[in-house]
Design a protein around this nucleic acid. Structure first.
Lengths: 186, 186
DNA sequence: CCGATTATGTAGCACCTGCTACATGGGCTT
DNA sequence: AAGCCCATGTAGCAGGTGCTACATAATCGG
């Protein structure tokens, strides 16, 4: 028996993945200490011990989740670029509809809502995740695009609007809007 | 003294405006029975009495708020139409930034988040508010627009994406995206 | 004027909330 | 071996949660 104890031996770093997984499944609304603690195999007491207070825990957790999101984006990134902007948008919208991304989508709107209310950590997490997505989108822009940087921003705006409309039952509205845009497949 | 008692004499209809005003200020997260009751000058007991349970209360409240939103839109509607799509989008984005609309904007993302989690009443309220906005937008489309219906849907998608990006600190991204679109003022 | 329905207040239930005090361990350094 | 610090368990706090039971008051139909 060396120093490798079989006791849990927890730390922020070991706790965060477990907490993130729980939050991705159940949302930020249900992120109260005791359920979180149970999901991580600890007690609420220990969560406060490691993070100081709940606000700090939420901040750290959101930052961690933003990192996980980035990794998930990388994992889902295709090899070859798109050949048209329209294909590029379609590709990322399809990615957003993948089951693997579903928990992120549900959590995303809670992050936006928290940011709108000025909650600590929410705006930073949202901004970071959008920056990540924007970067990914730029890398996916067609080869000969005349303005890949501006185009990526334009597509991002359209894509996020489409996702939002879909969430409140206006998927059809967004689809018809895209058909009426300069992205229409003709 | 006829039958007009000076006692409060509450009902769903008299309660809902008071509840809505509280929720618009403090958000759905703080919409627990006792604060709501205090804001409406009643007790949690009476809220349950009138609405049956909290879920029903939230449903009724969201439907009521969707109606208030519609009225606020009408009140802010300008007389003359826009002359270009770009002006049309700018006008509605400005409207969203008005102080009067601010509580709706903050509440909006909570509605979207609730819709994404399948909470009762949220999707319906979100869908209704978007339909209202779409209708308003159609009425604002330029006179000689070749495709006002599709154009309104296209603008709505862009506008909502812009609002979302602004909420998470990416207002600049959205602005640059619009500049790179076919809406660019040139 | 009486009886029934409607409206409201007071207490209270069982549970959850973030957080703390205190004790006890177990492993580390010296 | 002594002392010490980090980790963890048990209890508990004051307050909030949705909701209910019960009693009472007000109002209205007969």
């Amino acid at each position: 028996m060396k120093k490798t104890a079989n006791k849990p031996q927890m730390s922020k770093e070991t706790l965060l993945p477990l907490l993130a997984s729980h939050v991705l499944q159940h949302g930020m609304g249900g992120a109260s200490l005791r359920p979180l603690a149970k999901a991580a195999g600890t007690s609420d007491r220990m969560l406060i011990y490691h993070f100081g207070n709940k606000e700090q825990l939420v901040s750290d957790l959101l930052r961690h989740i933003a990192g996980v999101y980035s990794a998930a984006l990388d994992a889902g990134m295709g090899e070859e670029r798109a050949t048209t902007r329209q294909q590029c948008a379609a590709r990322i919208l399809a990615q957003g509809r993948e089951p693997m991304m579903q928990p992120f989508m549900a959590l995303w709107w809670e992050i936006v809502a928290g940011a709108a209310r000025g909650k600590a950590g929410y705006r930073e997490a949202g901004e970071s995740m959008m920056s990540e997505l924007l970067e990914w989108l730029e890398s996916q822009m067609p080869e000969g695009d005349p303005d890949p940087v501006g185009g990526a921003r334009y597509l991002l705006t359209l894509i996020e609007g489409t996702l939002m409309l879909g969430t409140v039952g206006h998927a059809r509205t967004a689809r018809e809007g895209l058909l009426a845009s300069d992205l229409a497949p003709n």
